[in-house]
Simulated scan of single mutants.
Amino acid sequence: MSRLPELVDAWAPQRILAVGGRTALARADAAGRLAARQVTWFSDFTPNPRLPEVLRGCALADAVRPDLILGIGGGSAMDVAKMVRGLPAEPAAAHEVLAGRRPPLSRAPLVLVPTTAGSGSEVTGFATVYVDGVKHSLDHPSTHAELSIVDSALTGSCPDDVTYAGALDALAHAVESTWSLRSTTPSRALAGAAMSALVAVLGRTPAPSLSASDREALSTAATTAGLAIDRTRTTAGHAFAYPLTARFGVRHGVACALSLVWLLPLTAERLGRDCQDPRGERFVRRRLDEIETTLAGAGGMAGVLARTGVSPWLADHGVTEAHLPGLVDAALGSGRATNGPVRLEPKVALHTLRARLRR
């Protein structure tokens, strides 16, 4: 991070728009490092950002006309920076871009700096925004940053719950990328490396205080998993996680892990009759074996959650049986739900979720 001024100078920017939460910007000493430059700051957004918040940033970008956009923070901050670079400020036009009916803008070069280890947003070509409680994606090659600066020291002051939620998100990326219909040999190598590194830290009992080397391992693994999902996209684990976050406030990474607790065994059980991967059942079975072998030392996904102090039961997160049909409808309406190895039938998903409500 100490190289930020030097790296920014590659674009010789006269005006910089810095996007990030106030805590993250302070942690990175962005104001001090950019003191010699004309910087406009945008922090007026919340975690899991909503479209009106993002469009305020887009309007600010139109007013400032920056030569460089700098996103510093967790996944939400980096996603906002991506959308501030790419979305029109006018709502109808922004919806057209999100729907894929027109290409994004490219207001200025984009530099991203993660201060958490999890989302991998620093290396992906998509960003998430919520519209009336429903997740939408800006997904286009131009969404990639020109430069990412990954410095694990920036994660050092993250509270444990934030750190572990981020790591769980990265672990979900690695698992889902492994079984994605779009997986390739190189993407699976990235996902496998990330999964092993994450379990090595998350699988300890009890969960330790994290050392600097642990945080470096988590940062590297999160970026590696991000490179994997950039190639493959996520699957049903994320599709079921989004409504858990939007409706119950469950941290995104925790919601992903909660979904994989039941999706992993369900996928293994239904593979023989519902396989939809054109590479066949044997191919998918090898992928499931790889995932199971890596997670086994930590007691599976439920064991990983328990080690980070999180209940694997949905009722402990505010979900009741009455909520389940709405969760299933929202998840299976997402394109991510069709990117996995088995077809998910609503009745089967609903039955399985009921079994995960409480012990």
Rank of each mutant, 00 (worst) to 15 (best):
124 T>C: 09
55 L>H: 00
334 S>Y: 05
308 T>V: 15
143 T>L: 00
114 P>Q: 06
146 E>G: 10
292 E>F: 06
86 G>L: 00
220 T>A: 15
124 T>D: 13
180 S>D: 03
160 D>R: 14
20 G>S: 11
306 A>H: 08
22 R>T: 15
137 S>T: 14
237 G>S: 14
111 V>L: 15
67 D>A: 08
44 D>A: 14
7 L>W: 10
159 P>L: 08
215 R>A: 10
141 P>Y: 12
113 V>R: 01
168 L>S: 07
72 I>C: 05
88 P>A: 14
297 G>K: 11
305 L>S: 04
223 T>G: 03
325 P>V: 10
84 V>T: 07
189 A>P: 06
126 F>V: 03
348 V>S: 08
60 L>C: 05
90 E>A: 05
179 W>C: 00
82 K>T: 05
228 A>Y: 01
321 E>D: 13
159 P>W: 11
294 T>W: 01
317 H>C: 07
26 A>T: 12
10 A>F: 06
176 E>S: 01
147 L>I: 00
208 P>Y: 12
116 T>G: 10
134 V>T: 14
280 G>Q: 13
163 T>R: 11
59 A>F: 08
106 S>I: 08
319 V>T: 00
178 T>H: 01
238 H>N: 11
100 G>A: 13
27 R>S: 12
263 L>K: 04
13 P>A: 07
240 F>E: 04
307 R>D: 10
323 H>A: 15
304 V>T: 10
270 R>I: 03
339 N>M: 00
221 A>N: 10
349 A>V: 14
322 A>L: 09
311 S>N: 13
325 P>H: 10
323 H>K: 06
146 E>N: 05
151 D>C: 07
281 E>Y: 10
27 R>V: 07
220 T>S: 13
241 A>C: 13
299 G>Q: 07
161 D>Y: 13
231 R>L: 14
304 V>S: 07
92 A>N: 12
198 L>R: 09
252 H>C: 06
321 E>G: 15
331 A>K: 05
228 A>D: 03
24 A>S: 13
68 L>E: 03
348 V>M: 01
268 A>K: 01
271 L>Q: 15
317 H>N: 12
203 G>Q: 08
333 G>L: 02
106 S>E: 11
133 G>Q: 10
191 A>M: 01
126 F>Q: 02
352 T>Q: 14
133 G>E: 14
335 G>F: 09
255 A>K: 10
324 L>A: 04
326 G>L: 12
233 R>V: 00
25 L>S: 01
234 T>P: 01
158 C>K: 02
311 S>I: 05
30 A>W: 00
193 A>C: 13
206 P>W: 11
213 S>V: 07
329 D>R: 12
148 S>K: 08
156 G>C: 09
25 L>M: 08
231 R>P: 07
104 P>T: 05
208 P>N: 12
133 G>N: 11
45 F>S: 05
85 R>Y: 09
285 R>D: 00
347 K>H: 14
346 P>L: 11
309 G>P: 08
107 R>I: 02
168 L>R: 07
296 A>V: 06
205 T>H: 13
290 E>I: 03
250 V>R: 06
84 V>C: 09
18 A>T: 04
143 T>I: 06
111 V>C: 09
45 F>C: 06
155 T>V: 02
131 V>P: 00
96 E>D: 14
246 A>N: 12
236 A>T: 00
314 L>P: 04
318 G>K: 15
68 L>D: 04
133 G>I: 05
44 D>Q: 12
50 R>L: 08
208 P>F: 10
151 D>S: 05
167 A>Q: 14
